[in-house]
Every structure is written in structure tokens, then in C-alpha cells.
Design a protein around this nucleic acid. Structure first.
Lengths: 192, 192
DNA sequence: CGTACTTTTGAATCGCATCAAATCTGGTGG
DNA sequence: CCACCAGATTTGATGCGATTCAAAAGTACG
């Protein structure tokens, strides 16, 4: 990122549950998480919350740079430190700084791939398959470290929290999984 | 798009069911659909096919420009005409042609928003809600024109085709929907 | 210590997937 | 033109798994 842009960053602090922006708000800044966690969410008619993005470091709602108004709400999931970059200078920097632009494009492409994986996961219709898919695609070497409660993980997996708890313990009983605090490790199918 | 790049396009024709590229293939070209339909798909262990992108005009697998290998398969869903752009010149054009670059960035951002909508839809756990959501977010003025069989629409909605058929006729019987060939119109809740 | 939230288990219900089979459709070739 | 075939569409019956409602136990925090 060019220094001239970095110099324009305004530090922000948000407490747990605090709203960063709402659907319909004009997009005036691009937010970058320094520390903590922010989430992009939408609520459906029943009041169920769908988590669309979870960011613990780096930008959030990157695609909003392209639209006049936000399409989702953003909230802080923990006490969070952010940087706020005004859109105008941000767009100029993308125009004029090739390295910055290139990394921004990679960021968007990564987000697309991540969302495709998420769609693939939500298309699986058993809880066990979604869990395995998540460990495979988001974990490292078969080990997934959770940075959230299981309840909110359940929401991310499109499951009720009860279903997640039950499936996790069933999979562990079947030897398909080892749960150790926030470390979830998948076990390969045992040879007979 | 700059003329110099357009001049490098190689026309291609693909028949229904023909594979355009497979997971793991090196990314050498960017494909653009001129006419017909191409799909990005992945198959899970049970042989179920998940549709990750459906394109009837414009680029497909845009995010692959950023990776050395494809992460999905691409197939033609009908007889399709495509253009093939070599990656190298394509990347140069993105560097050097600001207008082209800007529209490419918008394309990626749109794709991100579309995928978020798709995730939101798949998080709904009733068939009726997914259908309504799809009409609302992909239709125009409450009318959705299907450019595919209902069977493959069902796959896109993460439903079995039987569930889709049954839910469509139930919703129509309840007056929530009007089905007219490939036109699906949502009806607002009736005042009593 | 009390409060709010997560985690965990139980029981009942409902909707979707699945398997099966019949009908309808468009396209091909005789 | 008709027979035929592959695929889509439609309806039926069944079972399973997830949701839902309920409640208890655990946990973090002020």
C-alpha cells in the first residue's frame, strides 16, 4: 500500500456487537481490520443471521468499493481495532500504484474462490459432510483451529448449533474426528 | 477491451457436455462466452454435481487468472461459442488499459456479490424460501426467466429436483407464484 | 455471586432426500 | 411420418436427519 494512502488511515475502535455500517449506508470508507474480528451479515425474515464474511485481519466488504451503498451489515464480533480509508484516495491509489492494485485484485480473486468453496459446502446436505469439507478447505494438514464459538461456526455452516454439537460428538465417537478445545482434527478413514 | 487484445482472441466451439477445462489444468487462457452457456462445476464424493457458476455471456472463471491451476471443471451446457484469450497479453492489458482494468474489477466485485447472495440463499432451509429468494435476487420485477431446465435449477438451489417440482406446484396452488413456461412470477402476499 | 451466553442432552416434528415408476418431451434415424 | 430413445417432468411412498422447542449444566465476566 502506498504511504500516501496509509497516511490517510483513521484508526477506529469497535466493541463487541457494535455496528460498523448498515445495509443502505453510503460507502465512504474502506475498512481494514488490524486486530479483532468483523463480520458481514444479513438477517432474513425469521431473524436468522447469515454470516457472509468473517475477517480477522485485512479488508472487509472489499466488493463494496464498487457500489454506492452497502448490501450487508457489518458488526464487530470482538473488541476490534480498524483502519478507515476514504474511498476517493483509495481508488486513486488503485489507479496509480501497480503493486497495490495487483494485490487488491488477488484479494478479490481469493474472495471469489473462498465464496465458491462456501457455496460448495452449503450444497452438501449432511452435517458431517459440511464439517469435513470445512476442515479440508479451511484447515491446514487436516487440522482446523476455530477462532469463534461453535454456535457461530454452526451458523457459518448453515446448521443449527444443536446439530453441530451432536454431529461433532458422533463423528468423534466414530473415530472420524478428534476435538481438542478449539482444534478440530480430521482422521483419515481407518484401514481395516 | 483494447483492440490489441481482442485481436488475439481465438474462436472456439463446444458441444453440449463438452469439457472446456478440468480441475488441475494449467491456466493458459481466459474464456469468454459469446453465445450458449458454460458452467463451472465440482463433483463431490457421491457423484453429485455442484454448479458454482453459470455464464451465458461474458467471462467465466475470472478468478482463475490469479492462480496457476484451475480449481473446478468447466463444461458447455449447450452448443457454445467462445473466445479464448491468452493469459499473458490479458494480464498486460489489465496493467495498461485503465478502462479495461476498471471494468474487470467491477466484474470481480459483481461476482463476489452474486456469490454472497448464493450463500445467503443456500443458508435458507426451506425449498420455498430458496425459490422466493432466487426470484427476488435474480429476477426483474418479481419475474424470473429460466434459461435452464428445472432439474438443473434444482441443483443450483441445492435441492433435489423432486423437491423443486413439488414446492413449485404447492406454491402455485397457494397463490404465491405463477408458473408460465419458463417465466416464474412471484405474487405478493394477498391482502385478506 | 449473579448474569448472560455457550455448551450439552432430550424428545417430537417436519421437510427433504431417496427410491420407484409413470408420463411427457424433443430429437434421431429408419 | 412414425418408432424409438434419452432426458426431463411429475406423482407416490418411505425413512432419515435436521430443525425446533425445552431444559440443564458449564463458563466467562463484571
Amino acid at each position: 500500500m502506498p504511504r500516501s494512502l496509509r497516511a490517510l488511515a483513521q484508526p477506529m475502535v469497535a466493541d463487541t456487537g457494535e455496528t460498523l455500517f448498515r445495509t443502505g449506508d453510503p460507502v465512504r470508507n474502506i475498512l481494514c481490520i488490524v486486530d479483532g474480528e468483523a463480520r458481514l451479515v444479513r438477517s432474513d425474515i425469521h431473524g436468522n443471521t447469515v454470516i457472509l464474511q468473517r475477517s480477522r485481519a485485512g479488508f472487509i466488504a472489499e466488493a463494496s468499493l464498487d457500489t454506492p451503498h452497502y448490501h450487508c451489515d457489518a458488526i464487530a464480533a470482538e473488541p476490534t481495532h480498524l483502519l478507515r480509508f476514504p474511498c476517493g484516495p483509495f481508488l486513486s491509489a488503485l489507479e496509480n500504484a501497480p503493486a497495490f492494485r495487483s494485490s487488491w485484485q488477488s484479494l478479490l480473486a481469493r474472495e471469489v474462490r473462498k465464496l465458491r468453496a462456501q457455496c460448495e459446502r452449503l450444497s452438501l446436505n449432511s452435517a458431517a459432510e459440511r464439517i469435513s469439507h470445512c476442515i479440508a478447505s479451511e484447515g491446514h494438514g487436516g487440522v482446523l483451529v476455530l477462532h469463534q464459538t461453535r454456535k457461530s461456526w454452526a451458523a457459518e455452516l448453515g446448521l443449527s448449533h444443536e446439530a453441530l454439537y451432536r454431529t461433532l460428538s458422533r463423528m468423534q465417537a466414530e473415530g472420524k474426528l478428534v476435538v481438542n478445545g478449539n482444534q478440530i482434527s480430521s482422521k483419515p478413514a481407518q484401514p481395516n
